[in-house]
Amino acid sequence: MSERSAAPPSPFVSRPTASPADAARWSPRRILITNLRTISGRAYPRVIGMMREPSWLFFEILLPFLTTSAFVFVYRALQAPPEYIGFVVLGGAMTAFWLNVMWLMAAQLYWEKDQGNLELYFTAPMSMMSILLGMAIGGLLMSCFRAAVVLIVGTVLYGVVFSVDQWLLLLLVFLLTLTALYGLGMVLATLFLLWGREAWHLTQLLQEPVYFVSGLNFPVARLGVLGAAAISTIPLAVGLDAMRQLAFAGSVHTDGFLSPEVEALILVVMAVTFVAIARFLLQVIERLARREGRLTMRGS
């Protein structure tokens, strides 16, 4: 973009351009930077909201921690091996991400439409994928805090002892799990917008079964075929299975379904697939919006 070197002629204009054609000519670098800034810009309200409305500390940390504690006491009463307490605490921490994806992330575009933001997003020059990524990263940061609290407090309170041989692989699997999980969140967000309440009801219907087959509180391999199905479709199940094996290395109770390396590869495939599906669905949404004058599949 060619810009005049002279000072702006008016405070109404910050970046004077010679013509509309000049102003519309963006380099690939500028397009990339704009999309990166969009991601951080859209993540901003999530992070600010977390600090400005601390009531979430109660609803999203204290209450779910009670569920984790209940499982701990059950396992203790049953005199389960000590690793199981660690499984529960690890699962409790990862629940934060799953809840965030399933409820906040999935419903986000739907809310944006109701608030009138979606039209402004469509008329801005960035990719809608950046908006979705910004939502995901904002939610992820928020959930990281909650997960860390559950993990630290749970570890200290219940005396969990981790045994990690491959720290880097554990970190990689954790990051891949989050990427795949939030990729799924992006898909859910577009589906919620396309199908509205029907998608919402479907999520409600699936919440408990997904909890169950994800193996949040026990090794998913114990579920046999059902566990295999979960491993192939639910990022949380794969990620937890791999993390459990890596966080309690050498334990005879971890019962990994596949090796952590293979599960890391599955997570990569899941992440790429989910993000690609989300991108495709966003294109469908925009096409529907522009061609039909509506954003949902209903009424078609």
């Binding site: 910050s14 500028r30 930077i33 704009t34 800034r37 969009t38 951080s40 810009g41 859209r42 901003y44 309200p45 600010i48 909201g49 400005r52 409305e53 402004l120 997003y121 801005a124 020059p125 960035m126 908006i131």
Partner: peptide, 17 residues
Amino acid sequence: LLQVREQLWMFSQFYGL
């Protein structure tokens, strides 16, 4: 929940400022 200043800044990011 955003302040006036924050809201405008957020939108400014969508235009790459």
